[in-house]
């Protein structure tokens, strides 16, 4: 992977000047590369990882993992059904997986009832959906490679040979 992407994947707020210093390229070269990545869709979005448990007066968000079994369609396989499903704004992630079921969704709602309603009224009745299993998430420990607990600073000696 290009070093620029590697650096941005770790910290999307790294200034282009710093990226230039770290990669040995000019600021202009870095800017051009990033613009190109944004244009061709390699960089999809810049987001912040938030630990919602620590947000004061948080808006309650309930998340559920939903396993979905579907009937694949001629010529388009799973893509057609997947698109029908992931187009719902409640669906924040959608994966095609191997194993006992086909699609794995992460669905968000304001409370258990809204998620249950989504499953009952939108997802399950869909023509090609054969069955669903819903797991409500109770606690998030790690998100997208990031441990959400604040880690203790490791103590190194300030000076050593």
């Amino acid at each position: 992977m290009d070093e620029i992407l590697e650096i941005l994947a770790k910290d999307a707020r790294t200034p282009v000047e710093d990226i230039a210093k770290l990669t040995g390229r000019s600021v202009m070269q870095v800017k051009t590369a990033i613009r190109q990545y944004e244009k061709d869709g390699t960089i999809v979005q810049y987001k912040t990882v938030i630990n919602h448990e620590l947000v004061k007066s948080p808006k309650t968000i309930i998340r559920a993992l939903i396993e979905v079994s579907v009937t694949p369609q001629k010529d388009v396989g799973f893509d057609y059904v997947a698109e029908r499903i992931y187009s719902f704004p409640e669906v924040v992630s959608c994966y095609l997986v191997s194993g006992a079921y086909d699609l794995l969704l992460i669905v968000e709602g304001e409370n258990i009832q809204t998620v249950a309603d989504f499953v009952a009224s939108k997802l399950s009745p869909m023509e090609h959906v054969k069955g669903t299993t819903t797991h409500f998430l109770l606690k998030k420990y790690k998100d997208d490679g990031q441990i959400l607990k604040k880690l203790h600073n490791r103590k190194r000696l300030n000076i050593s040979y």
């Binding site: 300030n158 000076i159 050593s160 040979y161």
Partner: peptide, 21 residues
């Protein structure tokens, strides 16, 4: 070395070990 060890808020470039755990 003793001077460094007793000081606070030091940015140390004096460490002979990786900063990775």
């Amino acid at each position: 070395f003793d001077l460094v060890l007793g000081m606070q808020d030091v940015i140390s470039l004096g460490v002979g070990e990786p900063d990775f755990v």
